[in-house]
Amino acid sequence: MKFKAVVAQTRTELALTLRRGESLLVTLGIPVGVLVFFTKINTAIPTGYTKSVDFLAPGVLALAVMSAAMVSLAIATGFERRYGVLKRLGATPLSRTGLIVAKTAMVVGIEAIQFAVIVGVGIALDWEPSGSGLIGAVGVMLLGTIAFAGFGMLLAGTLRAEATLALANGIFLVLMFLGGMAYPLDALPTFLRDLAKALPAASLSECLHGVLNGPAGRGFPTGSLVMLTVWAIVLPTLAARLFRWEE
């Protein structure tokens, strides 16, 4: 794996992501929009929180991870596969490992931007996260990234590009409401809540709520962390096994 090649590939991946309007919309527009809108309308918040932004900001960080690592990565990769870009790169000295490293760096780069913007907007909306909480959040976000990027690559490497596009967006929308992000899990019907808690989205947002000074007395959601770790192992493993480089 050559450093120069991976740097060039990462730069290209980042430039392409930042140039696509729809990818900016889903990675920055929607998370920031959700944060501002639901804070301003004082959305329903679970017991233990005093301000809606305290509940929303961690959830929106989870949403950001989902948008960059799953939606944006899956759609871009799906169409690269469709247009033979992945195949063509396979005939260059940039190895598959090099490509995966570059894509990972791209996702982490986008998430760094998201993190800065969301934390900034949150603070402007009277959010008061602790420094240690933010550091913990970065760790949780990275674990969530492994899980969701694995899922994104699984979609992109097995389905047709259009199906990946539709499914990634659809799942994003469903998980936004079943993930304790814009809407409290506690407010869901019991069967739906149990289902939601088993999915990676709620696991991720519960962990983020946990590290970012969740309601006192609740304790850290160890169960969610275990669940998220399982997804972070299962999804990339499946993707690695099932990924097809040509559509």
């Binding site: 392409l16 696509r20 033979g84």
Partner: peptide, 30 residues
């Protein structure tokens, strides 16, 4: 792969890049 060049029957290029960007990227691989 360091010693061959490949032109596929179709596709293989990032649709969102400008021609010079495509070649700069590929140049970095060698």
């Amino acid at each position: 792969r360091t010693r061959i060049g490949v032109m596929l029957q179709e596709g293989g290029l990032y649709p969102g890049l400008r021609p010079i960007e495509v070649l700069r990227l590929f140049a970095a691989f060698y």
